[in-house]
Amino acid sequence: MARSRKWLFAAAVAVLTVAVTSGASQAQAAGPDDVGVMAAHKSPFNCGKTFYANNWSPGHSPSGSIDWQSYGSDAIGGETVRATAGGTARFYTTLAMADDIGILAYGNYVIVTHGDGTKTRYAHLASMVGSPGSSKSVSQGTAIGTVGGTGGDYAPHLHYEQITTGGAIDTSPTVEGVTVSLGQKKAVKSTNNCGGNPYSPEEVCGSGFSVIDQAALTGGRVYLLYNSGNSNNCVVTLKSTSLGAASPVSAFLEPQSGSRTTDSGSFAYYAGPVKKSAPGTCVKWGGSVGSSTYTSPFEHCG
């Protein structure tokens, strides 16, 4: 009998859940004997962002998972996805697993194993901060990817699961103190990573870059990063005041005997990244927040 595309996707999700959920023999809902999700989870989005958490039922697979969707005029596509609680993140993809009608299930996805043994899964990501098969330690609020629609012909959204230590899906997950039970759809405002700028210099510059120098500014800090894999330098200036509101900020990078490149304007969180390849060449770097500026001498000549 021919099966519907929806049925095949549900089957693919169930198979993948068995494959990657440690200790689980099948994708199932949490029962009274399961250990509940104990970590205090925040929204998986930047501080202040509001999106719908949709625990739609019946028909969503696995039951109890959340589809985070656009709220009002705030479109979710491309949004930064952040760990809802700290732990160890591992990165996966099913993009090489297409069957004869193109069912790709989770697409790019991340599983975070938390200190209490519970897990969260973040699926259909457009991009991830780690390559498939890699892992990294994350704190609550660490960026792990961006919202997309990978794994099928999906509108951008974030598929999100809270998984108990027994491997079951919690069918009434709680984020930001808001419980979203089966059949419910609630608007949830994020308080994740609200302690400061929601971006890190490594996140702005991208994979492979590490901070090698930095300078304080009134209202922010400018960073110089280096990627030893390709000899690229990167400069980014992060604001610490007026976050989320456009205000003057800049970043520049100048290899010795080369031209200076500057990113300058009114930005909500940061200026940059400004990247240049300068193997064996000294660089001058710096930036500004408002009237506070920093300019280095030519240095870091490796």
Rank of each mutant, 00 (worst) to 15 (best):
F252K: 07
A19H: 14
V20C: 08
S288G: 00
D74N: 11
M128L: 05
S43C: 06
F91D: 00
F252M: 09
N108F: 08
V110H: 09
D99P: 10
V283H: 08
L253K: 10
T241N: 03
T88D: 02
D99K: 10
G167P: 11
D263E: 06
L104E: 11
E203P: 08
C234F: 10
T93K: 05
T118H: 15
G64T: 09
G117Y: 13
N233P: 01
S57I: 00
C234A: 11
A53K: 06
D34I: 04
H157R: 14
Q26Y: 12
G290T: 03
G166K: 09
C282P: 09
G64H: 12
L217E: 02
V13I: 11
V211R: 15
F267H: 02
V110E: 12
A246I: 00
G258A: 13
H159Q: 04
L238H: 15
E161D: 10
D116E: 10
Q162L: 13
G48R: 01
P173Q: 12
K185F: 12
N55K: 09
F91I: 01
S137P: 05
S231W: 13
G152F: 05
L238W: 10
G145V: 04
H157W: 06
K284T: 02
Y92N: 02
K284A: 10
W285F: 07
S247Q: 10
L243P: 00
A187H: 11
S257W: 14
A268M: 03
S296M: 13
E79T: 02
G87I: 02
P248H: 15
A246G: 03
V222P: 09
A278F: 11
A27M: 14
P156Y: 09
S181D: 03
H159L: 04
P58R: 14
S291H: 14
E299N: 14
K284S: 07
V15Q: 09
T191I: 02
I66E: 06
A126S: 13
Y223D: 03
A12L: 10
A126Q: 15
W56M: 01
F91W: 09
T179G: 02
G149S: 03
P198N: 08
G77W: 11
R90E: 09
V289G: 10
G195W: 11
G167K: 05
T281A: 09
C205V: 05
C47I: 03
Y294P: 00
Y122D: 01
E176H: 07
S291G: 08
S61F: 13
G72M: 14
K49F: 01
G145F: 13
S264L: 07
G78Y: 09
H159S: 02
V283G: 07
A30C: 07
G219C: 05
G64M: 08
A271N: 05
S259F: 12
D67H: 14
G258E: 06
D116C: 12
H60P: 00
K275M: 07
G145N: 06
E203I: 02
S70C: 05
T17R: 05
S292E: 05
F252P: 01
S242L: 00
G148L: 06
